[in-house]
Design a protein around this nucleic acid. Structure first.
Lengths: 121, 121
DNA sequence: ACCTTGGTTCGACGTGTGTCAACATAGACG
DNA sequence: CGTCTATGTTGACACACGTCGAACCAAGGT
């Protein structure tokens, strides 16, 4: 079972579970490379529509939601698909087709890593 | 000429309350308004240069840094100023002029609030 | 086969954003 | 005053981004 496949933001550096992408933001100044990687995650959540979609998936029963369940965010359906793709490329969501519907779920380790970036000293 | 907008993400009420902007992303689907407000914060950190500047301030000795200390991020000085302004408008940094230099420091409550948004259920 | 429903991809358009050079402003100091 | 240093602002430009309609793909049902 491929629980992790080519996440563009997580280097397979440690067998650890919490995906140590980068140290907390207040530990030391980020290098250009760290910033490049990390900014992609924040940018993915930097759009209101994407934030609503992500929140809808994250809060949905069972930890997953099909597009039909969450596509009521005020934009056209192609736009929803576009944003879900962006969230997927950022490593924040994964998708799987089961029959007629496509189900999205959050990647908990990546979200946890983002939370740790913001840990207060 | 004081066009200093009120912090768009924090209501000026609690002394050191943890900025009750929004519930965790996984608690319930965000409303359009919540998403609009919160996305501004994530978007501010969604640029590599801004992320480096923010990290430089956050990790600097004494919790504050003057522009001259952190402006070595590979872009021109006006661009640095522009990004610092963006971070300030997002409520993530505050600035204060002391004599010749301008010092920036992080707004801990806002960062803490962002961390809580990503709290895993 | 055909059609219907769910989702993605494509092509285009308008807006937003990052960047710089040039200029402007604010103190410090003589 | 004038001048130097440290930051901020303005204007302009190229590029990225969000959005939509139309076309396309994937499964199921009839």
């Amino acid at each position: 079972m491929s629980n992790v496949k080519a996440l563009p933001l997580l280097e397979p550096e440690g067998p650890d579970a919490v995906a140590p992408c980068c140290p907390p933001l207040s530990e030391r100044p980020f290098t250009a490379e760290e910033a490049e990687r990390t900014a992609r995650m924040f940018k993915a959540l930097g759009d209101p529509v994407r934030l609503r979609l992500f929140s809808a998936v994250a809060s949905h029963e069972g930890g997953e939601a099909c597009v039909c369940d969450i596509s009521d965010v005020g934009v056209s359906q192609p736009t929803v698909s576009h944003h879900l793709k962006k969230l997927k490329e950022a490593g924040l969501l994964t998708s799987e087709r089961r029959g007629t519907w496509v189900y999205y779920r959050v990647e908990p380790s990546v979200v946890a890593a983002m939370g740790q970036l913001l840990a207060v000293r």
